[in-house]
């Protein structure tokens, strides 16, 4: 029973991270109809920016006490802003010239951007080619124990922060004027432009919001796994990003609620697979789910099927 609860809890925590990353994929897909391959690298960038900013602020050096909460939030803010800027630049320079290009070309460009970010990040003048350990930003003590499952502060922070961000996004999309512009552009870019919506601006902001969410996920990841962050070109980042993408597809790509649902689903499947089947095939479970979903219900759990007009 304890094992079950523990797995459930871990699955939900990681699922929240996947959901945050998946939101970025799904928002970009919803509006531009292409897979932003570089999104996983923005996530990696988020982790590394947290380390760097914390370093600048002198947090986490050996022997230092855990910093107060507002400093941690400052790190989070800094990470989100820098990553948002990167997202904006990438969209502006690489994706905008391809607005009318075939989707395949945009996908290849995204692969190019991904490789670029990975390898730039490894240069000595950026983050360097070696793994680095993450500073402790939030106390890692156990908060309380439910039926033998220890609930740590970092877990609560992850889930809480994820909930806050997702709610904020939900409000942004469905309750604000900008949100309705976004939905209009996603539905039909050209018509939206004719209605006086500045589509380029909407797309830019969507990118920024998406990358900021990934950056937040990176920060939370850093908090939860206070161990080592691999170098930016390590395949683990792409793997994590891919799982988040799978979450977006499983939930129904282009659908914000679907991304959250898919994230939780993928987190749970992964952890239950590891706990009850075998940890060796950890990555295989996720892709097996992806293939099953694509074959049985290609539009995803909450998605809608589209028909090509002849």
């Amino acid at each position: 029973m304890t094992q079950f609860l523990q797995t459930l809890f871990d699955g939900v925590t990681v699922g929240c991270l996947y959901a945050l990353i998946a939101l970025g994929y799904t928002m970009v897909y919803g509006i531009l109809k292409f897979i932003n391959f570089a999104h996983s690298d923005v996530f990696a960038l988020g982790v590394w920016m947290s380390i760097t900013i914390a370093g600048w602020m002198g947090i986490g050096a050996a022997g230092q006490p855990t910093p107060p909460l507002y400093l941690a939030l400052l790190v989070l803010l800094g990470t989100m802003v820098t990553c948002g800027a990167v997202g904006f630049t990438v969209e502006r320079l690489a994706y905008r010239p391809l607005r009318r290009a075939p989707r395949l070309n945009v996908l290849i460009t995204a692969i190019g951007v991904s490789l670029l970010l990975q390898n730039l990040g490894q240069r000595p003048f950026m983050f360097g080619p070696y793994p680095r350990s993450l500073p402790t930003l939030v106390e890692s003590g156990t908060l309380f124990t439910v039926m033998g499952v220890p609930v740590r502060v970092s877990d609560v922070a992850v889930i809480g922060m994820a909930l806050v961000l997702m709610t904020a996004l939900q409000i942004l999309i469905f309750r604000t004027k900008f949100g309705s512009a976004m939905r209009a552009v996603s539905f039909n870019t050209r018509t939206a432009s004719l209605m006086g919506i500045n589509a380029d601006r909407v797309i830019s902001i969507t990118f920024i919001v998406g990358t900021m969410l990934a950056a937040a996920a990176g920060f939370l990841y850093g908090m939860k796994y206070g161990g080592q962050a691999k170098q930016t070109a390590d395949s683990m980042w792409v793997m994590l990003g891919l799982k988040a993408f799978v979450a977006a597809v499983v939930g129904g790509i282009g659908n914000v609620r679907g991304a959250v649902l898919g994230g939780l689903l993928i987190g749970l499947i992964e952890f239950f697979g590891v706990a009850y089947l075998s940890s060796q095939y950890r990555d295989a479970y996720v892709f097996a789910i992806l293939i099953a979903v694509l074959l049985l219900r290609p539009e995803g759990v909450l998605g809608r099927a589209t028909v090509e007009k002849v």
């Binding site: 690489a94 391809l98 290009a101 070309n105 945009v106 290849i108 460009t109 692969i111 190019g112 951007v113 991904s114 490789l115 670029l116 990975q118 390898n119 730039l120 240069r123 070109a233």
Partner: peptide, 12 residues
């Protein structure tokens, strides 16, 4: 790798 990446983007 950085060159390749830039080449891919510019090419596309």
């Amino acid at each position: 790798m950085i060159l390749y990446a830039l080449l891919l983007i510019v090419m596309m």
